[in-house]
Design a protein around this nucleic acid. Structure first.
Lengths: 224, 224
DNA sequence: CGCGAAGTTGACACGCCTCAACTGCAGTGG
DNA sequence: CCACTGCAGTTGAGGCGTGTCAACTTCGCG
């Protein structure tokens, strides 16, 4: 990690969490944030880390994962440009068993818990914004994990591909991550994932055109 | 469901969510809550229900479950006396794919979303309380599901038994729910659960004494 | 070119789900 | 009071998906 000088870009004002605040308040917060660059693979925080802070992703991609009692690691979700994370740690304190690492080179604005708490006293309305932010994340996490809990790897993979197609607004796209990472995200291992890609190809649901491009052969994207 | 007269018991003031509010505010909210009794098996809300409201469980036991795309139902958690639920629906609107049913006869205080939103405008600090409440639930849910995602049924069952022993503060206890429900909670089916109970008995980890009582044979409860 | 990681493919075993039959128990009604 | 019914729970047989282990190929990079 490498601490950077204050960015001309203002992470704060672009965030829904703070967008309602008056200008002078924004200026105060700006002085309290750290702007930090992380190299690929670097850990932003992990289980033993107790320095609680809010993350505003300015550039790059982060991965949030969880390691359960038997030692297996499960990817929960990714953070991309503009995403916020760590809202819970602001109010509860440290997050248990959650790890955050940079997937690629990333630049992040960080706000420490203490600074945030004093802010909430001056600006009580921010609590509601925070609640909204957390609630949205919870719903996201909930539906993600519901998919993991039920259904086969094939089901999960297909659902992921459909979702990706929807996001990119195209039936032909590249995977947003490596297959190894995708396996961890889908709660499986590369070997099994590979077989399921083959399955879908044999069923003519996808075709694997040149250079890792995925083509979905579905007339109607019927996601719930 | 059966609407009851206003309870002499005040759900509101006992809830952390509202405990900070002044008395006159508490009185106002009290007029807006509904006090309702649900029979066992009755649905409090489900996927298609869009009447968003906060639930304060006064008596009884409720079950929150989720049905994923392939039709399988997964129990997420239970609500007991004093528990709150539906915080997310207050601010986001309806919760997707989540169902709530009464396990036994239950009495619940309900606050409608609209009423709550006007409340937050008068009392902005309540937003932070709400955020805390949601964040805590999110952590709970997160660790619960992490256990589901990894490890065998046997692991999950044993962990559940240990947790239950810890809660009841005794190595000898009755299951807090039927084995059928426990199966759904552990993400499996009764048949598989039954076999795993047998496994644990053969390993002398538990003994199934008279009348459904479980006895854990562990010198040290070594939960992480 | 050579190294290491990513990805693929095969053999294999095991856990879990499916289906099904059977038992035990509680509630119901004749 | 005792069949009848229905549901919870158990047990068995069987099959499929998935994790494990291992060998091999492919790819990217110094």
């Amino acid at each position: 990690m490498r601490k950077l000088t204050h960015p001309n870009h203002n992470c704060i004002s672009e965030t829904v969490l703070f967008s309602q605040l008056p200008q002078d308040e924004l200026n105060m917060i700006s002085k309290q944030i750290n702007y930090i660059e992380y190299a690929p693979g670097e850990t932003i925080f992990d289980v033993e880390d107790d320095s609680d802070r809010l993350l505003l992703v300015h550039q790059g991609k982060l991965k949030i994962s969880q390691t359960s009692s038997n030692g297996k690691e499960q990817t929960l979700y990714f953070l991309n440009e503009g995403d916020i994370d760590g809202e819970e740690s602001l109010i509860i304190g440290s997050r248990h068993a959650v790890t955050c690492v940079a997937v690629i080179k990333s630049r992040i604005c960080e706000i420490r818990r203490g600074d945030f708490l004093t802010l909430t006293k001056r600006q009580p309305t921010i609590g509601l914004s925070l609640a909204i932010s957390i609630a949205e994340k919870m719903q996201k996490l909930q539906t993600q994990q519901a998919n993991l809990l039920t259904g086969s790897v094939e089901d999960r993979l297909l659902k992921f591909l459909k979702d990706t197609a929807e996001e990119t607004d195209s039936l032909s796209f590249e995977l947003p991550m490596s297959k190894k990472e995708l396996a961890a995200y889908l709660g499986t291992i590369p070997a099994t994932l590979s077989r399921n890609f083959t399955k879908l190809e044999e069923k003519r649901i996808i075709s694997n055109s040149s250079k890792g491009k995925i083509v979905l052969n579905i007339t109607k994207i019927d996601n719930p």
